[in-house]
Each structure stands twice: as C-alpha cells, then as structure tokens.
C-alpha cells in the first residue's frame, strides 16, 4: 500500500513540474523623428517563427509617403522601406546588437529606426 502511495506521489510530482514552453526570439522596433519624438507603431514587437519555411511580415506606415516592412523567417529579419531604397538585414545571432537606420521619407522628413532583440511580451 505504501509503495503504491509512493508511486502515485512520484507520478503526481512529475505532473506538477513546471514547463515554460518554447523559447521565442523577438525583435522590438522603435522609430523616432528628427526631433527625437517617438513615432513607433503600436504593435512594435515581432516574434520570429519557429518552423522551417515559416515567415512573418509586418507593415507599418511611418508617414504618408513612407512605409516600413519588417519581414522575418526563423533565421533573420529584413527591414525595408517602400518609398525609400534603404534596406537592412539582421541575422538571428545578431539580435542582441541594436540595428540603427536613418531613413529619409520622400516627403523630406527624416526618421531613425532602431531594431533590437527582445520584447516586453511576445506577440506576432
């Protein structure tokens, strides 16, 4: 009887082991104008996908003539601007280092973009 109880307790304790789930790589995007005012988009966090072949794309309008496109697969993040020829790529291993880009909109306004690994909360 004691052995059975012990076995049950052992099984129950196994069942109670905590599991944090999978690890996800995130990148956080912030954009500021030439005056240093934060003009970051509302959803400024992107989670890199896990599966081979998965892709994620976000589009953010910075101003009337400039759109930012963030495109990621599980190994890299690509940044490009529709309305400007600026583009950059950040490998997954480089996410700890911030990527800074200065871009000028066709409207004449200048912006600074900073992309860095990690977000307050994972989201898509």
């Amino acid at each position: 009887m004691k052995r059975r109880l012990g076995l049950l307790l052992a099984l129950a304790s196994l069942g109670c082991q905590s599991n944090a789930g999978l690890h996800y790589d995130n990148v956080h995007l912030s954009v500021s104008d030439e005056a240093g005012v934060d003009v970051s988009p509302a959803n400024s966090c992107l989670t890199l996908p896990l599966l081979l072949g998965s892709q994620v794309e976000q589009r953010h309008r910075i101003d009337a003539q400039l759109e930012l496109v963030l495109h990621a697969d599980r190994d890299r993040v690509l940044v490009r601007f529709d309305g400007s020829g600026v583009r950059a790529e950040l490998a997954r291993e480089q996410l700890a280092e911030p990527l800074e880009l200065d871009v000028e909109s066709p409207s004449g306004a200048s912006y600074r973009l900073v992309l860095i690994g990690g977000c307050p909360k994972p989201s898509t």
């Binding site: 599991n19 944090a20 789930g21 999978l22 996800y24 996908p49 896990l50 599966l51 081979l52 072949g53 998965s54 892709q55 994972p122």
Partner: peptide, 17 residues
C-alpha cells in the same frame, strides 16, 4: 502543411506551402 503547438504558451504556428 506543418504545425507546432506550444500548449504552455498557447501559441500555435502553422505554415502551408
């Protein structure tokens, strides 16, 4: 089609080629 479902984080990722 491939899928991974993380029940702990309530995240299901699917990709269909």
């Amino acid at each position: 089609h491939q899928s991974i479902h993380d029940r702990v984080r309530a995240r299901r990722e699917t990709t269909t080629a």
